[in-house]
Design a protein around this nucleic acid. Structure first.
Lengths: 229, 229
DNA sequence: ATAAAAAAATGATAAATATCATATTTTGTT
DNA sequence: AACAAAATATGATATTTATCATTTTTTTAT
């Protein structure tokens, strides 16, 4: 079911917030709605994108294949964010693979519309560029964290991060379905190490576990851990 | 000594390549030339920038202070590149400290000029955004390298990277003056580990050393190492 | 609801890396 | 050129993290 861009729930969450109703109706005419099931891939590393994707609902992971064959999760994306704008702006293939962590509704907006808007609408281009700058800032933080923190600190930091960006379910557990392996692929460690440390955090009362789900019990202590105390 | 932007040697190396002679003469009127000595700081993490810096000559490092008090080198910048545009575009304080690795000549261009140009000149904004996208790509690569590669692989990779971007001096040594500690801060390891691995690489014939300087003797083997063979 | 498959958990051990200590060499400065 | 300071080098040891093996639990698909 297609939704009019003008009334889209996530309209204010990304660069499209600075687009006039008129231009938006043009975008609306050219957009296509797509449904992606959990576990499915939106696009893969090395693909030339024909447009930008706007995530209306759901969550996904952005991964890169390392030379050792393991996948590195570079970033998570949730409702409201754009996907593929880097590739469209640079006019180059994408270097990331997008995989749905849960069912997703996505709107596809053709490249030509995006580039036209970018060139003619200074507010749109500024807004889009700002969001890329924010991604760059985040990435620089990740580099420092990866380089300077040990695995325990990175895990503590990531749990707090997941809690912050994905929120909690009705029982207070972090509201994202990640396997231990995926957590390991995000923080750059072996799956067993992640499992071991989660058990340790549980034993220490920092978190509690229910199957795959994780609940943060002591955010203050976890924060201290993340900062290396 | 001030140089006219229109005839600047590095004019083609960054987003200013898409600026008309007329607009450039306006930039030229407002720019200020600055000389920064080796070891000096151009600006520090947390500063609100009043403009963008254009690096006419020299090399510098972009660092971030980690919670553990160590500095993380996030990136290196050489002649021709812009500095501070992320901060200016985002209208937020900078999150990086810029330190000269050798004497630098820099041109300062006020924020107002940059933002005006960004809004009115679609080619300029596209070009600038493309370069930020390239930085983001690079940063994502760094994240994957930090997370997935061990210290030996990261060091091999970094040596090849330094050789590629900084070139060689008259004797074939990599043409950048980095201490072992700085190399360690770039790859995210202890200084002693870096020193030990450099000794090992030397023993194995991959590199040779002369004081602080490093010469790559077997790029093919180093490349294999970097890829984990 | 059940069975098969996948994931999580945990132990034992090996390998990588950090830390601390100290000697030697190089660099930068006068 | 000589000196002091800084950086490099290396050994010994501790700590962290990875790997391999196996059992238990959870998830997924029917």
């Amino acid at each position: 079911m297609s939704v009019n861009c003008d009334h889209c729930v996530i309209r204010d969450l990304n660069a499209f917030n600075s687009v006039s109703t008129e231009d938006l109706s043009n975008i609306n005419k050219h957009k296509k709605s797509i449904h992606i099931k959990k576990g499915e891939i939106l696009f893969e590393e090395g693909t030339a994108l024909k447009g930008v994707y706007c995530l209306r609902s759901g969550k996904c992971k952005l991964t890169k294949l390392a030379p050792n064959g393991r996948e590195q999760i570079v970033r998570f994306i949730k409702k409201g964010e754009l996907i593929g704008h880097r590739s469209v702006i640079s006019d180059s293939v994408t270097h990331l693979t997008i995989t749905a962590l849960e069912d997703m509704d996505v709107c596809f907006v053709p490249k030509s519309e995006i580039l036209e808007l970018f060139k003619k609408n200074g507010d749109f281009s500024l807004s889009l560029t700002k969001s890329i700058c924010a991604d760059l800032d985040e990435a620089n933080n990740s580099i420092a964290n990866m380089a300077q923190k040990n695995v325990k600190e990175r895990l503590a930091e990531s749990l707090l991060f997941f809690d912050r960006i994905f929120g909690k379910d009705s029982e207070g557990y972090i509201s994202v379905n990640l396997t231990r392996e995926e957590i390991a692929n995000a923080i750059g460690t072996a799956t067993e190490s992640t499992i071991r440390l989660l058990s340790e955090f549980k034993k220490d009362g920092y978190i509690s576990l229910s199957g795959r789900r994780i609940k943060i019990e002591d955010p203050v202590k976890l924060q201290h851990l993340a900062e290396g105390y």
